[in-house]
């Protein structure tokens, strides 16, 4: 079963089996963002506490396939303690990695050298998803949800 290892890397399965930062913060005071994948019924609920534009804590609840759950879990680990600006950059990088047509991502907001400093670390494990185009939406669900949540704050 060749291609499957590309998709289901050990670290992805680990995040799926033992998801990090599960739960819900009281909202308010925490902020809340909800996302759905209308095609497959996956749903994610993010609650996060912001202080001075820094994500102090972010928790995840909801349900979905291994890819959407692992991606959410990895995201939760990656964004704790980061500033909103840093999170936006990371999200941009992640979405570039997840895109088949890189040029279609945020044309008005292209990734620059400036976006590099963090590296994607563990998140690179999700790169294999691109070979399975129907699953890309699973991987980006939590990220898009967080972006929408941050946009709504107008920070």
């Amino acid at each position: 079963m060749s291609g499957l290892e590309d998709l289901y890397k050990e670290i992805i399965l680990d995040h799926y089996r033992s998801p990090r930062h599960r739960g819900e913060l009281d909202s308010p005071p925490a902020h809340k963002a909800e996302g759905f994948n209308p095609l497959c019924g996956d749903e994610v609920l993010l609650t996060f506490a912001l202080e001075d534009d820094v994500i102090q804590e972010l928790l995840i609840s909801g349900q979905g396939c291994s890819i959407s759950q692992a991606s959410a879990s990895m995201m939760s680990a990656a964004v704790q303690g980061k500033s909103v600006e840093e999170v936006r950059k990371l999200t941009r990088q992640f979405k570039v990695m997840m895109s088949i047509h890189e040029e279609s991502i945020g044309a008005e907001d292209p990734p620059s050298e400036d976006d590099k400093p963090f590296g994607l670390g563990d998140l690179e494990a999700l790169k294999g998803v691109v070979k399975f185009p129907v699953r890309i939406k699973c991987a980006t669900l939590s990220w898009n949800t967080l972006l929408t949540g941050l946009d709504e704050l107008k920070v």
Partner: peptide, 18 residues
């Protein structure tokens, strides 16, 4: 999850819907 099940089955040439 149904998505994961159908993905694994697809590797064996089995088409089911999730």
């Amino acid at each position: 999850h149904p998505h994961d099940l159908s993905q694994v089955l697809d590797q064996r040439g089995i088409c089911i819907r999730a």
